[in-house]
Nucleic acid binder design. Structure first.
Lengths: 202, 202, 202, 202
DNA sequence: CTATAAGCGAGACGGTACGTCTCGTCTTCAC
DNA sequence: GTGAAGACGAGACGTACCGTCTCGCTTATAG
């Protein structure tokens, strides 16, 4: 599953207990010691697991972290749709404010930085991320935009991918590079500016 | 200056030769071996310098890399203004296409990833980056937008920081996380969408 | 065994190949580069071994050197008795001349100086030396003296430890501190003087 | 003077204050931190002196230590003769007991170990030691023995150098290699055994 | 209902790099 | 023009992890 190598490893005999312990330890350690000090040795020790058990099933530290996020996201819910009250601007503000809150949460900040760092340096991992985590989330965002588009609230020829990136990109950037205060007000401002565009409206 | 620690180190006696050799080696190695294999030991060896000379003047690998970029940016020019032909959309497309080209340049891709990674995990470095590199660039971008704003081409109440982030954020994100193809066409699309906004124009 | 620390290190899994390579390298390097330039790093490199493998099993450079001598002494023989022809003076001269020759042998001189230096600065090592190397040798010397004592060739109330030290101490001292020429003739002179004493014999 | 290299250094301008500070610091540090941690760097810092001032005047750490002992021995007295009460045995016991006491003194133990170690590994230093420190002391010892020899208390054909080494060698050895308890009683035993010899006296 | 082969915890191994310390040389500046 | 101050290239220190490799133990089919 997920990111394991295609060895002869007999997945049937795999210990589910160890797998969960490893993923939990990886996520927790990323939060506690930060990306730089996150090590396979440390994960194995925390999980009470032999190092080989990690190396057997994951090709890299980043892959472990990725699976840790995957476990969390699957454990959560069935990828629910974004709110759709009919008021696009309000809905987007709600969602972006939630994004801001999550990025601000100390429990998620460091692990997410760690994952993003690994993705930035590992194209394979980036592909897996795009397919398994970012893709589904993006699809839900586009669903909401499509609904608005059908209602005539968005330009008919709008490229939804560009639209999504214009809404979430600024937040992601401020967060990752600490390029400025990441507040709910900022989220509101981004939504308003993106919807209206930079040009004056008549 | 820049990022050195405020120790008792006597900067007056500092070897400029070694400093330049270290920064050049750091930048080059980041490009050659990638972020993960970039080591102080390697930089020192490549620069023909003792490790202590690096540790004496920089607090971290990221600070060296930061100064390497700083040297490059200072060596370049006097921070020239963005093109201003009067046609905002065309000017922005020119500049964003240049940004795409730079991010695509293998000589800069890896070192910039390395620097961005360090920034993401080091708030002090992020502050220095914001002040010394990102700040001046952003100011030039805002200058161009302000000029357009005066000409009535941009909304009078536009938050220029949000505008800048809405234009460059999507590019930065696609690049860093490999979230999609980073093409000149994409740059154009971002400019158009940002200028017009997501909502239909009458 | 020998001088290893009493950590949780699992001696059962210890690599005998590495152990021998380390001890051989330590002894050889001590002879080649001298005590001052003998380094754990160098021993590890020469032995084709990771530094940690040395640090895991020995507490100090001196302990490695000690075990190197131990390996040699055990590899040699079963600690044979000193010659006993019935002529004590001749036998002692034979043995002390052999000692002189050994101390003069360039293959052993430097390593032995290195070991002696470590012993001089490390009481624990000194205790191990006294028990494992010096002790057995001294016992054989005392055996020979005891035999002579029984034959009435030595004073009945002689303190054998003092006797041994009076015979070998002068040699050891001349050698270690280069306090004078260390020749077979000197060995003879020491034996004669020790046997007869400083006082005139009637 | 003493052990300096034969450079063009202008000894006339030499700072006597610095010289004394360095020698004092060297001796004290040898006693405080032990031989292994004794460093030129540390001596310079303790003496409030630039490292170059040490390197300018002494060829090695051992040479500094040697001069420190030289300063002490010269500062002491005019190399007084050993006691000569007419009772050789009693006089020797007195002197050897004093030697034992000195070797036992924690103020001298470590510095002397350090000096002896340097001598053991540096033939030039050993020669200087033999000439400037050990030589004069040995001459006084031989003077006392010669006096006894003239009085018929020692064998007429006695080799005085061998005699000295047989008396002091065992002490030096026990001390340096911690080969056994170094007590006044031991000193007495050595004197008695050396005087009478190992063979039975009629 | 064994036996056998895999996964497992543990951890030793050859390595690389860390950040610190000291070496011995060289340069700058105050006296 | 000496001497303190200390930067420099060099390289060893002892530690932390890397990724690989056994070692016994357990466990879950497959004969």
């Amino acid at each position: 599953m997920t990111t394991q190598r295609t060895t002869t490893a007999n997945a049937a005999r795999r210990s589910e207990t160890s797998r969960r312990a490893i993923l939990t330890a990886a996520f927790d350690l990323a939060g506690e010691v930060g990306y730089a000090r996150l090590s396979i040795e440390g994960i194995a020790a925390r999980a009470g697991v032999g190092k080989q058990t990690i190396y057997r099933w994951w090709p890299s530290k980043g892959a472990v972290l990725f699976d840790a996020f995957l476990m969390l996201s699957e454990g959560a819910e069935g990828d629910p749709a974004l709110p759709d009250t009919g008021d696009l601007e309000a809905d987007l503000k709600t969602v972006l404010r939630a994004t801001v809150a999550e990025l601000d949460d100390p429990r998620y900040d460091e692990p997410m930085r760690a994952l993003n760092t690994e993705i930035a340096h590992d194209p394979e991992l980036a592909a897996a991320y795009a397919e398994r985590l970012e893709g589904p989330m993006r699809e839900r965002k586009k669903d909401r935009l499509r609904s608005a588009q059908r209602a005539g609230q968005l330009a008919a020829d709008l490229d939804l991918d560009v639209a999504v990136e214009m809404l979430w990109g600024p937040l992601q950037n401020r967060w990752m590079l600490r390029g400025g205060p990441l507040t709910p007000e900022y989220a509101d401002r981004v939504v308003e500016t993106a919807l209206n565009g930079l040009r004056p409206r008549p």
